[in-house]
Simulated assay, not measured.
Amino acid sequence: MSFEITILGSSAAVPVKGRHMTSQHVRIGNHQFLIDCGEATQHQLLEMGISLHKIEHIFISHLHGDHFFGLPGLLSTMNIQRRTAPLYIHGPRGLDEVLLASFKHSNTELNYKICLYDNPTMFPDVIFENDHITVETIPLIHRVPCTGFLFREKKKQYRIIPEKLPSGLPFDAFRALKRGEDIEFQGETIQFKDVTLPPRRSRSYAFCSDTKFSRSVISKVYGVDLLYHESTFMHRHLERANTTFHTTALQAGQIAKEAKVGKLLIGHFSARYGDLKVLLEESKTEFENTELAKEGRKFSIIERD
């Protein structure tokens, strides 16, 4: 099953040439998700060949414009293109008022249903779940209520070794063995551990949006395969980072190191930095396996034993 993140936007507060407002597309198996929706998100989706209509859930971290001003336009385009499938939006309290005012004053009547849910911002909570994954909020420290999102695969099933099974085994027996259950077949007990391999590791991706440096995040993202953490400023601008409730590249590296993550992506770059290599190099002083979350880049989390 695929697990891929595509970066649509990496800029903080305002766009700069070649850099757009925050947004990411997540594809896990047959399910597609959007995280944040800054201006020009729908343009970026079009540019990268991602269908608007295959997106099932949108997760909005907070109500600063660079993270959601693209949402009314995206929803309007879906409507013009006659979307019929329901769309599920998970965002902070107050997002409903913004959307309703936008639709009211533009005289827009949607052809499809929007299901809008308030994110808990004071404590972590599972806000979406299906047969394969959960999505949980990560409380963050910002000037307005803000959450990150943790995408985590559920525990996987045991893997059948076909050559170790007798012929004629019914389908229900296969399913029981994959669940880790012993079965009876033709008067004999077949132990699951004798005919299966252990489940593959469950994969995980954590998106940490705008936040002041906080070690409380570490326990929430501990051990994830891939961590995105905002890195708006270099550490020499720490005072500015603290004033605006943002994180430096150095601090993002520290969090990744202490949380023992597999890989760190940094983004949400201030417009003052034309050359992003300086932010990358600073983060790498704390956590070597760091990459820039730049527009168009795709990051796959590979399935491993």
Rank of each mutant, 00 (worst) to 15 (best):
H142S: 15
F299D: 07
R297G: 07
G296C: 10
F287Q: 06
R152F: 04
P124S: 15
N107L: 10
L238F: 06
R19C: 00
F3E: 05
P199W: 04
I50W: 10
L34R: 04
Q254H: 04
K260A: 13
S283H: 00
K220G: 03
T247W: 02
F245Q: 12
D125Q: 13
F149H: 09
S202V: 04
R82E: 00
V195W: 00
R179C: 03
V135H: 01
F171W: 03
H235S: 15
E303F: 01
L63F: 08
L250T: 04
A206G: 10
C37V: 10
Q186K: 14
K284I: 09
E97Y: 09
L74T: 06
D172I: 11
I50A: 12
I141E: 15
A256H: 02
T248K: 00
L150K: 13
T147Q: 03
F269M: 07
F69S: 15
R240M: 06
P145A: 11
R82F: 08
I80A: 13
M234A: 13
R82W: 05
G38F: 00
K155L: 09
L226V: 03
E291D: 15
I80R: 11
T196Y: 04
H132D: 09
L116R: 08
K263P: 01
S219Q: 14
H62F: 05
M1N: 14
P145E: 05
Q24G: 10
T77N: 07
E303A: 14
L46G: 08
Y112R: 10
H67S: 13
E188R: 01
I266V: 11
T137R: 06
L116P: 00
Y158Q: 03
V144S: 12
F103T: 13
E163M: 03
S51F: 08
L140E: 08
S216D: 15
G65W: 12
H25Q: 11
R93G: 00
Y222K: 09
L100Y: 13
L45H: 12
S216A: 12
F59C: 05
S106V: 02
H20S: 12
L280Q: 14
E97P: 01
F233E: 05
L45C: 13
I190Q: 01
G274P: 02
C115K: 11
